[in-house]
Simulated scan of single mutants.
Amino acid sequence: MKRRTLLGMLASLPLVQSLPAHAATQVQVYKNPSCGCCGAWVDHLKAAGFAVRVTETDDAGSVRKRLGMPERLASCHTAIVEGYALEGHVPAADVKRLLALKPPAVGLAVPGMPVGSPGMEYGDRQDPYEVILVDRKGRDTVFARYPQPPAGDRKRL
């Protein structure tokens, strides 16, 4: 290989590394047709680079049950990404971290509809909430806390 060719390849390496490795990760969302906050969460995922398909249903609970997400962690919509269930207003950054870690789990949940979670914005108000990781036995642990605690107080997966 000629030196000029090698230098040209090396110079273009940062550009190549900035390109996506593959197509956007597909998220399938099941939501109530009249739910505006669910639509706002879908927009949050799209803005984070996810490809989102929406199926409108009046019974997201049956999807949640089929995926193995406990009813005690229910919220207003359920989604599937790479075999993981997402329940409620899970931040896109936590979905990306889940997909990078690939833990043996059912998925992530943000129970209820906490103000300040993606899709549930209300001015500057930010109620504290947790993103819960559900393992395959139905046990849950805290995956993330919002607002973020000081660095020394973080206990995350």
Rank of each mutant, 00 (worst) to 15 (best):
residue 9 M to C: 14
residue 122 Y to I: 07
residue 151 A to I: 11
residue 87 E to M: 11
residue 147 P to D: 11
residue 48 A to H: 09
residue 128 P to R: 15
residue 96 K to G: 13
residue 18 S to D: 11
residue 116 G to S: 13
residue 48 A to M: 04
residue 35 C to S: 10
residue 154 R to Y: 11
residue 106 V to R: 06
residue 30 Y to G: 02
residue 17 Q to E: 06
residue 111 P to E: 07
residue 157 L to C: 08
residue 127 D to N: 14
residue 146 Y to D: 06
residue 44 H to I: 04
residue 39 G to Y: 07
residue 38 C to R: 09
residue 29 V to L: 04
residue 97 R to Q: 14
residue 67 L to E: 11
residue 20 P to N: 04
residue 103 P to V: 03
residue 40 A to K: 13
residue 107 G to E: 11
residue 125 R to L: 14
residue 18 S to K: 13
residue 127 D to K: 10
residue 74 A to P: 06
residue 71 E to W: 10
residue 152 G to F: 15
residue 103 P to I: 11
residue 132 I to Y: 07
residue 1 M to N: 12
residue 130 E to D: 15
residue 32 N to Y: 14
residue 27 V to A: 00
residue 102 K to Q: 07
residue 3 R to D: 13
residue 21 A to G: 06
residue 120 M to E: 07
residue 113 M to D: 00
residue 13 L to D: 12
residue 27 V to L: 01
residue 75 S to H: 01
residue 112 G to H: 07
residue 63 V to G: 04
residue 36 G to I: 02
residue 24 A to V: 01
residue 145 R to H: 04
residue 39 G to F: 06
residue 76 C to P: 10
residue 10 L to V: 15
residue 109 A to N: 02
residue 14 P to L: 03
residue 39 G to I: 01
residue 83 G to F: 02
residue 13 L to E: 05
residue 4 R to D: 13
residue 146 Y to V: 01
residue 10 L to C: 14
residue 142 V to F: 05
residue 7 L to G: 09
residue 13 L to T: 15
residue 135 D to C: 11
residue 66 R to W: 07
residue 138 G to L: 04
residue 63 V to F: 01
residue 12 S to H: 05
residue 60 A to I: 09
residue 58 D to T: 12
residue 118 P to I: 00
residue 68 G to M: 04
residue 95 V to N: 00
residue 40 A to E: 02
residue 11 A to P: 07
residue 11 A to D: 05
residue 89 H to Y: 08
residue 123 G to W: 06
residue 65 K to Q: 12
residue 77 H to S: 10
residue 147 P to S: 00
residue 85 A to S: 13
